[in-house]
């Protein structure tokens, strides 16, 4: 056998030892300034700037006094930093009859968002669990109706719901709006939870039934602790969705119970007096602060939850 090997190496004329030492080995070297990298990072920087420049303008404007704004250079940083516009936007800006700034709208939004989020998620998660694990009679029909519900345009339902709320005496109240938000969040949330619970192995559910756990015991003791990532996703979706809502807020509430977004609109679009750009900017940032904070705090969890659902669902 040794003979054959020697013959081969001689015939091909390669010194195997030298080849091993000089040839490529280890990690492939990376060039930092390749054409690919320039293109990649250039695009990324451009896109990031596209999104960040408006935010920059908003922040610097909100920190300037009106005389400085009138000079006209929106990109220049403030010469003299003032927090006056922020205080005014929060506490004393006038909308219609009230002159207590956005604070009223903020608390209204909190009072709308918190119960809506809790209520809609509680109901939707049980819905999803029942649909995924307890194949009751008519489950498919129910699910189809729910899915169709997710695709009906809001405009179609606005007026019927106005009448409905008026009939039950909740029109113009915070609770009316809570109900509306919960209803409109239901299809997509139920779908989200159903898909997640479908991905839980069926044998786990069977094991729990053999162990004597009923509908609620399985939900609370087995499914709920496993579903935390999807709950985080649902909470984020609902908080941002409901906080940012304008349409339902303006339709189903009265000036006293307007959510923050509607109040913001009224401040920014008020026609009397001079336009106070710095106050408007501060008010806008204040309104956007809650969803922004939610994203920052939970960004990682959010992505993880979505990914988990995507892979398994």
């Amino acid at each position: 056998m040794a003979d054959v090997q020697t013959l081969n190496t001689v015939a091909v004329g390669i010194d195997p030892v030298a080849d091993r030492l000089s040839g490529p080995q280890g990690a492939r070297p990376k060039r930092v300034l390749s054409r690919r990298n320039i293109f990649l990072y250039g695009t990324l920087i451009f896109v990031a700037a596209y999104y960040l420049v408006p935010l920059y303008v908003m922040i610097v404007t909100s920190l300037k006094g009106m005389p400085e704004i009138r000079l006209g250079n929106i990109f220049s940083p403030p010469v003299e930093i003032t927090f006056e516009p922020w205080v005014k936007a929060w506490a004393t800006a006038c909308t219609g009859l009230n002159c207590d700034g956005l604070s009223r709208g903020f608390w209204n939004s909190v009072r709308i968002t918190v119960p809506s989020v809790i209520f809609s998620i509680a109901v939707a998660s049980v819905n999803g669990y029942a649909l995924a694990n307890w194949r009751f009679k008519g489950a498919n029909t129910f699910f189809t109706i729910l899915i169709v519900g997710a695709f009906i345009p809001y405009q179609v339902m606005i007026y019927p719901i106005v009448i409905l709320l008026r009939e039950i005496g909740l029109y113009g109240t915070l609770w009316g709006l809570v109900i509306v938000h919960s209803i409109f969040g239901m299809p997509i949330l139920t779908l989200l939870f159903r898909n997640y619970f479908t991905s839980v192995p069926e044998e786990l559910f069977k094991a729990a039934r053999v162990d004597g756990a009923g509908f609620w015991a399985i939900y609370f003791k087995i499914m709920l602790p496993m579903a935390l990532p999807i709950f985080v996703v649902a909470i984020i979706l609902q908080i941002t969705g409901i906080w940012n809502d304008f349409l339902f807020g303006v339709i189903y509430t009265k000036p006293d119970t307007y959510p923050m977004t509607v109040q913001l609109n009224n401040i920014v679009n008020s026609v009397q007096g001079v336009k106070e750009y710095n106050v408007n900017m501060a008010a806008t940032i204040l309104t956007g602060l809650v969803p922004l904070l939610v994203y920052f705090v939970s960004g990682k969890l959010f992505v993880r939850g979505i990914a988990a659902g995507a892979v398994k669902g």
Binding site: E203, L204, K206, A208, V210
Partner: peptide
Amino acid sequence: IGMVFQSYALYPQ
């Protein structure tokens, strides 16, 4: 009855 499954089906949490 008691049942043992192929995938173990232990409660993960």
